[in-house]
Design a protein around this nucleic acid. Structure first.
Lengths: 116, 116
DNA sequence: TGGGGTACTTACCTTCTGGTTTGTCAGCAG
DNA sequence: CTGCTGACAAACCAGAAGGTAAGTACCCCA
């Protein structure tokens, strides 16, 4: 899964970052460095637990996020970006720029979200 | 449709370019400048007519591609990128770079395609 | 008369994605 | 003993996305 074959690099990149919440997850992790599962969940209003885990697992499989499990009770799991994840985030920069301009151009609404 | 609300610019950009063939269409049009429907179809091995038209129409609605119809028989329709489409393509550049490196890293296959 | 080419449209079907709900484990507060 | 927490897992379901097959209109060529 997510191993091609691909037409080109964009095709491959979209395969990795194409999930509904994946780009947002990257953005959250980029901004905060490290987040616990519950923090991510609260930072992404509207995502369900199942889907968030799904997307995180896929990103982990693809080497984009790192998952650190602590054998504690209650359980603690911390997510962060790998080097590849940081590179992907950088590569998404111009696309985000374009998208922001598009939002202004078409007058679309923005969903507010609390950073930090 | 495709008018938000969005969390951020990447969210909005993915909404526009997220279809299965849209990035490939952009790439084809970027490389060739102008393409007729049949040329695009032949350039994108595996796409069906229905889906190609669907994606082209959506890209047209979003102001990414320009559709020029000639009232001839047999019919002739030419597709090209708008200014916004060209800007979007530029913004996809780094992502394509990242994706190409990923293809090499994981040793994924590439689907060959004849340019020109 | 019949087939081919162009750019579609329509109906139908399957697959894939995401969402809802409920259950799990361990311990701790009440 | 019950309920709460954190990070999931499993079962189920709805809608969207994509794919297949056929039909449309017009003309040219043989």
């Amino acid at each position: 899964m997510r191993d091609g074959p691909y037409f080109c690099g964009i095709d491959a990149a979209m395969d990795v970052v194409g999930g509904k919440w994946k780009a947002l997850i990257l953005w959250e992790l980029h901004n905060s460095g490290i987040r616990r599962f519950g923090e991510l969940r609260r930072g992404l209003p509207g995502v369900s637990e199942k889907v968030l885990i799904q997307q995180l697992r896929e990103l982990e499989q693809d080497g984009i996020v790192y998952r650190q499990v602590y054998a504690e009770v209650p359980p603690r799991v911390e997510y962060s970006l790998t080097d590849h994840g940081r590179a992907l985030n950088d590569a998404l920069g111009p696309l985000g720029e374009w998208g922001s301009q598009r939002i202004e151009r078409i007058g679309a609404e923005r969903i507010p979200h609390h950073s930090g």
